[in-house]
Design a protein around this nucleic acid. Structure first.
Lengths: 349, 349
DNA sequence: CTGAAAGCGCTTACAG
DNA sequence: CTGAAAGCGCTTACAG
């Protein structure tokens, strides 16, 4: 690779000190406009680019952020990453992506990734995969390493006031979804839950249960099954449920991906959606809008979550004020399509 | 943020020189096992992490790669990124993601991103969005900056022997797809082309035209329309085509995303797939497998392309042999589902 | 306005 | 085996 010009090269050509060159390049006052111009013209001629490592070494910052996701190929995380990257770029930061994958020891994997990215001198990290009692968070707050939780949060009581986060109101999400199904005429519904060690699934489930109680719906623990946000698991769970006695008339899947698994199970035994079985998802991923899918779902403004997360993190990094915490909770909205019945004029009850 | 221990701190505690500490930490020979152990134990006690910027400054490498995509939320690019990130991580590299977006001045945007990432001291870049005569590539080869083209390539003749790439055999993709449609009984087909300034679309189109010629199919320039890989454009083009006289009986969309746009147009006027109109896509994105979609499509092993791209790039970086070029061409395969008719026992003709 | 010196945290010849 | 010195490319007080 061609080797790059340094400040010294410029100094030599301009016959001045490298101090002067540095100051000119950084538009500091205290340089005559004559030398400044000379420096600048030599710099562009040489295609001078400051050495990033050297600058980082001095400034103690890298202007790079990291984002940890389960799987960047998952539409939810991809959309999140798009938001984060865009906002980061706008504010002068680059974005490193890390996938935890679906290893069983996810927390260890996460720990290794965090330690890797910290070793790399990243300025801050956005975590979207933490578990309810994630041990890695405590370390970050102890060390005052800038981070923000997006999507999932920790419920560790002693950390409550020390984490920045931007999440959906998942309790409300579970409640509203269940209520919607109730008003469409369903009295017993199956909840296809995500990973219950994630705040998203845990809270959505709690919201559902609360709504069932409030509305006097039938409740039976066997109709809520943990499927870890994995489509295949949701498919199998749905098959099982559909073949049971008195099976529920509606499924509330805690994300669209699992809803698609449930959908396959329903269609496979020639049941119709929504005439025979209703189906509700969460996320409003693009696929749900397709003709023939038309899944009713609960919106998260995923990209906006990414943007807000990035903004919050950068703010935290640059303010360097450890005593200020941003906790942002976004409101879920139902997008009514056809999978729960379609009554444009209102609800059934 | 808590400040981190340095080599000096360790030296002070161990009462030895920082040279010795450095050598011990790096497992260099020429250090007594006694001091080595002392150093190592102090290091772990202090949670010592070497300063990355300082190391980079000396080693002149950052162990980070960059990937430029149009939009990380597009399933194709997301899958590609997954492959790249995984392989990069396996080989000790981190991955920076850059989105060009869909700005009209894409080449300028790309140029800015490249210059940004080079300034950041990235070790190499994977480009997946280059145009046929992309001016940015020449700069990279001139400067011997490590890069590999994935998905799209340049057709600039004087660069042909100087670029590493991993791409689909797009000519064959266009040819095979068209041939498949012909054998399913179609004599005139519409080609919903991607951006014709991309090698993918250009070559697929050329392949299609060649097949039409070879097979004696009807040809009419008005049935090939450039839709820039944008679903909405494909939708509009399909609407227009479907309302024309003697409209083709099949659509060959050059990616699944556009195929989905065509699908909406077809279904909207109550035509059936494949009974009335056949539809063929490219990419085999997950959505195409869903019941009710079941799109016949041409597979790219996208993740594998990402993996191979990363491997090739890292190889190039570490071998530092500018005279060796890797050009990898992957074979397309048709995945037969239901959108072109479904004849498990063979073709119509 | 300009430059010599020190330093960021590390590594690498080079003496001892 | 161990350490003092120089240096990676830059910036930041500090003198002049």
């Amino acid at each position: 690779m061609k080797k790059r010009a340094t400040i010294k090269d410029i100094a030599q050509i301009a016959k001045i000190s490298s101090t002067a060159v540095s100051m000119a390049l950084n538009h500091r006052p205290g340089v005559s406009s004559r030398t400044r111009e000379k420096v600048l013209s030599i710099a562009t001629e040489l295609g001078y680019q400051p050495n990033y490592a050297a600058k980082s070494l001095i400034s103690r910052q890298s202007n790079t952020l990291a984002l940890i996701v389960h799987n960047i190929a998952d539409p939810f995380y991809a959309e999140l990453a798009l938001g984060v990257e865009g906002e980061a770029a706008r504010l002068g930061y680059s974005l490193l992506i890390y996938n935890t994958g679906t290893s069983p020891r996810i927390e260890e994997r996460e720990r290794d990734l965090i330690s890797n990215l910290r070793a790399r001198g990243v300025d801050g990290v956005i975590l979207s995969t933490v578990s309810l009692d994630d041990p890695n968070i405590e370390l970050l707050v102890e060390d005052r390493f800038p981070f923000v939780l997006v999507n999932r949060l920790s419920l560790d009581p002693k950390l409550q006031t020390k984490m920045d986060f931007v999440v959906l109101d998942n309790l409300s999400c579970g409640y509203k979804g269940t209520e919607h199904l109730y008003r469409m005429g369903h009295d017993t519904i199956a909840v296809i839950a995500g990973a219950l060690n994630a705040s998203t699934a845990s809270l959505r489930t709690r919201g559902s249960v609360q709504a069932m109680k409030d509305l006097g719906m039938n409740r039976d623990p066997k109709w809520v099954v943990e499927c870890h946000y994995i489509r295949e698991e949701a498919y199998r769970a749905a098959k099982r449920i559909l073949s049971a006695q008195n099976c529920p008339s509606a499924f509330f899947a805690q994300d669209d991906n699992m809803a698609l698994g449930v959908r396959e199970a329903i269609l496979e035994i020639d049941l119709r959606i929504p005439q025979d079985i209703s189906l509700l998802g969460v996320d409003n991923t693009p696929v749900t809008a397709l003709t023939g899918i038309e899944l009713t779902t609960i919106t998260q403004h995923i990209r906006q979550m990414g943007i807000t997360g990035a903004k919050t993190l950068i703010n935290k990094i640059e303010m360097n004020n450890p005593h200020m915490v941003n906790q942002i909770i976004m409101e879920p909205e139902i997008v009514i399509r056809k999978s729960c019945g379609f009554y444009p004029k209102g609800y059934v009850r």
